[in-house]
Structures are given as C-alpha cells and as structure tokens.
Design a protein around this nucleic acid. Structure first.
Length: 525
RNA sequence: GGCGGGGUAGCUCAGUUGGUUAGAGCAGCGGAAUCAUAAUCCGGAGGUCGGUGGUUCAAAUCCACUCCCCGCUACCA
C-alpha cells in the first residue's frame, strides 16, 4: 500500500428503472472532478459509483414493460456504465446492489443492527409511496383532485398493512444531534444541515425496514419471507465496496469511513439521518461528509416528458464534447445550488471561456513560439513588475483552489482560474510580444515564457475538470505526463522548463459553431 | 402556521463591522490592435439595489411593516 493519505468519495447509486438523465450525469461529473482533484493533490483516491437495483419501482416498471426485473436492469445498467465511461469518469469501482458481495454485506449490517437490539418485528400500517420509496404519516398525505391520495412529493401513496421489521431510529435522535454538533460540516452546504437537524430535533419515529409483499430485494436473514427495505440495501453499498463485512481487511481499514458522499438534495434525509443511524447501530464509523448538490433545469423548467424538454446526456456530449460539457456544468452552476442550462448558455460558455479566453491565449502565444522561435520555449530574462504580478497570480491559484475544495466549491476553483486567464490576456495584450519581436527579442522571449508558465499552471488545475483537453494543452506546452502534471508542481516552487522543443500548436478548445441540424437541447415534441 | 434563504444592470449573479461616482461575467454600443480559434485589449452606456416608513450627517447595507419567490417543517382539514 501507499503512504499517501486516502480519500474515499462516492456518488449516490443510480436507480436504473429508466435510462440515465442529465441529473445522473451531473452528479457523476462533479464527483469525478473531486476525485481527480484529490488524486492530483497527492491522495490515494477510491471513487465509487454504481446502481441501486432493488425495490418495488423496478418491479413495477418491469411489469409494465412485460419483462422481469432482472431483464429490466440487465438492459438499463449497462447504459449507466456507458454513461460513466462516456463522461470520462475515473471511478475505481462500479457497484451493483444485485451483486453477491452486496448481499453478503447487507445481511451482515442487518445482523449487526439486530444484534445491537435495534431491530424488532411489528405490524406496520401506513401510507407508502412506491415512487418515493418512502413511508409517510397520514398527515403528510392528502387527496388530489382525482381523489387519489398523494404524499408530500405529489406521488400516489398506498395503504400498506403488513408484518414488518422496524429499526429503532427513535433511539438515535440524540446521537445524531450530537454528531451534527460535533461535525459541523457533516452535511454541506450548511443550510442543509440546519434543515436536517431541525427535522431530527422534531423527533424520530422508528423506521419500517422490511417488506413482505415483494420479493425483489435482499432477504432478511432471519425471515426469508421479507426483503429489506430498499434504502437499507442501497445505503449499504458504500461499505460493501470498501469490503464490508470484512472490517479487518486492508481495504476496509484504509478507506472507511468515506470522506464524502455526493448526493442530490432530494435524498439528504436518507444519508444524513438514516445512514449514520444504521452505521452507529452496526458499530461502523459514520462517513465524514455528505454533500448535497442541486437540481438542473432546462430553461428554468424541470426536465420532464410532458414538457418535452428531456435532454439525453449522450446527445449533449455528441453536440458539445465531453470536456466542454463537464466544464459548463461545473463552472456555470454554483455547486450545491440549483442551476439552469440551455443550448445557448452552453455554447456561450464554451466560446467565451474555453475557445476565446484560454484556447486562443494558448494558440496566439504558442504559435509565436513555433513560428518565430523555432518552437523552442525561450529562457526568461529579468522579470518586470508585470511579469511578477501575473506569475504571483498564477502561483496563488492552487492555494485558493484547495481552500475552495475544502467545501467542494468546484465553481470557485474554475472562477479563480479563469480570473487569472483573463489577467493573462490583459498581460499579453499589454506586453504586445508581436511588436517586441522586432524591437526587443529577449523581452519577447520573457513574455512568451511567462505566458506559457501561466498556461501550464492553469492547465494542470483544469485537469480534474477537463482531463483530455487540459492534457492536450500540457502536451503543447511540452509538459511530460506523470509527476510533472500534478499539483505538487504548482505554485512558486516550479516553473515550466525553458529550452524545450514544443510540438506544433493546434487549437485545443475549438469554437462551438451552430450546426445546420436542430440542436439536442431544443424541445423535441 | 413556524424556521431558513432570496428579491441588485437586458440575462446570471457578487457586494453588510452603514460612508467617495453600487461591481463582475455574458449580451449591446463605440474605439484600438491585427500575434491569435472573426479571437484580444480599452472605453461609454445600462440599475428609484422588491415596496413603504423609520434610525442616522450618511443605508443596497441597521430597524419596523409589507409584497413576491424558493427550501425545510408543522398543523388544520
């Protein structure tokens, strides 16, 4: 094993009763950027994603389509895997809750909770929403215009009355509140922790954690007539992948507890209340942080089939490319808040930030090196005040980036990098190296060197966000792959090597040009 | 109903220990430059800072009331 510090980060596992949508893609992109950032910053990262394949909703979708649950997931899960690959996600594992290792793990955590006296059998009766996979108190439900009883999410609920196993969630109220007090960053953004804490403060009821009326799930160990409530099963994936129940294994000892669960804001309660309670009960450490991201809206509207604004992540990538799409979502949407996207907004971002600001700066400076200096990166002379100022700004980027990443502020990292790129464009225009070529060649060399150095640091910081494109830019700058492309090489201590023969420059971030055919984000009725 | 967040330029937003002409990006207008991916740089323009009333020499920033949006939560039914 390595002596690097470790970092275990997960996405939520996706529910494959339908093909992946933009929200799944967003979560995967963001988590991948975090994982890559940490790797480049010297961490031994374990990045997990996967699919949550049990539960009544899968069963119902399968029935509606006239296939078995197994057939449904075997058809859909590969699309989630393909999406992760297409998004260039660097996940180290992809867990499916139908795997043997996960059965073993789920049964083990159940038995541990049972052994701790937190599971008991009782009769359950109440309102259950299949779509939300949640039980609601009658007071949370109401009758809609059609006379159908619906829950708080406006999904239909059904009266369920059956034998069920319960988890003594009520016993964990104080322990959870203590946890929130002890770890103020347990849930981010902070507003979300306040919401969770006030929910817990309001009192917790025991949780029904098994169902006897369906068979698509992991059997309860002591009673095979029951399967586990899908959330017990789903949440457990995070420890399964770390090797649970082999808590003495090297892997488990190394990676658990997870450093970060990245989830959507709709499932905060499950992750910030139920999950730590299950773990405390089972005698397993709780994760360190839950980060809840926002939702994405297409032109301000929630994506839905009825509005006809469903956007397939694959076609978005076909239209714009993987790296530009990754950049757009991570730059445009403050991480943790809801965000908007549209075809025009994506095109504008790509052209303004990537093609014009960064790409063009690289192209204009490097083509000067290629044409006027035989492609040899010049040696700098004595630095002027302007040189020192822009270099200092470049050196400071990693400092502020690390600071922003402490709370997963991905957009801030990019904001700061692009502020320096804008400075670099002003610097370049102000120094006018094309004029210096005739009047003061050594000075021209210094300006081009300084520009290349700023580009180098910017490109390395872009690696987590746009792995391929940033890598190409580093190729153009003559920065060899490997250790030279890590955060250890950022800041005052490292400078780009002068005298290097650079390859012929070519645009790394092409402008987006509107195709003749209709764009993918336009409504398809 | 309670708690919390928010209403600032055409768009997206930043901006509170109250204090010179309220900021950025994008869009738009004018100019410069022409090394570069028709990219870049500079400049003007653009806002009764949700509304009303107050505190103050001075309020986007503090107080009261009020309108609207969003989140969590409760209750009634």
């Amino acid at each position: 094993m390595t002596d690097k510090p470790r970092y275990y980060v997960t996405t939520a596992i996706s529910y494959p009763n339908a093909p992946p949508h933009i929200g799944h893609a967003y979560e995967a992109i963001a988590t991948d950027a975090i994982a890559r950032f940490k790797r480049l910053d010297g961490y031994d990262v374990f990045f997990l994603t996967g699919t949550d394949e049990h539960g009544q909703k899968i069963l119902q979708t399968a029935a509606r389509e006239g296939v078995t649950a197994q057939t449904l997931i075997d058809r859909n899960v590969p699309r989630f895997k393909a999406m992760a690959e297409r998004l260039n996600c660097s996940n180290d594992d992809f867990i499916r809750t139908t795997e043997q290792r996960h059965y073993r793990s789920s049964i083990a955590i159940w038995e541990a909770m049972e052994k701790n006296g937190d599971i008991y059998q009782d009769k359950y009766s109440g309102w259950y929403s299949v779509r939300d996979e949640a039980f609601y108190d009658e007071s949370e439900t109401r009758l809609n215009e059609q006379g159908v009883r619906i829950g708080p999410q406006n999904t239909p609920v059904e009266w369920v009355e059956e034998e069920s196993y319960f988890f003594k969630l009520s016993a964990y109220q104080q322990k959870l509140l203590d946890l929130y007090a002890r770890v103020p960053d347990f849930v981010l953004p902070k507003e979300r922790l306040n919401e969770v804490a006030s929910f817990v403060r309001g009192g917790l009821q025991d949780l029904s954690i098994s169902r006897a009326t369906l068979n698509w799930g992991i059997p309860v160990p002591s009673n095979n007539k029951h399967v586990m409530y899908v959330w017990v099963d789903a949440l457990t994936n995070y420890i399964t992948a770390a090797g649970y129940p082999d808590t003495n294994s090297e892997k488990f000892k190394r990676y658990w507890p997870a450093d970060l669960h990245v989830i959507g804001k709709d499932i905060v309660r499950f992750h910030a209340v139920y999950w730590p309670a299950f773990l405390m009960s089972a005698g397993v450490e709780v994760p360190r942080c839950i980060f809840s991201h926002g939702f994405l809206f297409n032109r301000g509207e929630k994506m839905s089939k009825s509005t006809g604004n469903v956007v397939d992540p694959f076609s978005l990538i076909d239209d714009f490319g993987v790296d530009p799409i990754r950049y757009f979502f991570l730059r445009e949407v403050p991480f943790g808040q809801d965000g908007n996207y549209s075809h025009e907004a994506i095109a504008t971002r790509i052209n303004a930030d990537l093609a014009n600001d960064l790409g063009n700066l690289a192209q204009r400076s490097l083509s000067m090196v290629a044409r006027q200096l035989d492609g040899i990166l010049p040696k700098p002379g004595i630095y002027s005040e302007n040189d020192k100022t822009i270099l200092a700004a470049a050196d400071a980027m990693i400092i502020s980036a690390r600071e922003a990443m402490k709370t997963q502020q991905l957009h801030q990292v990019l904001n700061q990098v692009w502020a320096v790129i804008a400075d670099a464009n002003r610097y370049f225009a102000g120094e006018a190296p094309w004029a210096l070529a005739k009047t003061d060649p050594p000075r021209q060399g210094t300006v081009l060197y300084v520009t290349a150095e700023v580009l180098r640091q910017a490109a390395i910081l872009c690696l987590p966000f746009m792995p391929t494109a940033a890598g190409k830019l580093l190729d153009l700058l003559g920065v060899p792959p490997g250790d030279e492309r890590t955060f250890a090489k950022l800041g005052v201590g490292s400078r780009i090597a002068a005298g290097t023969k650079l390859p012929a420059p070519s645009p790394v971030f092409p402008r987006y040009v509107e195709p003749e055919t209709s764009p993918a984000t336009s409504p398809t009725k």
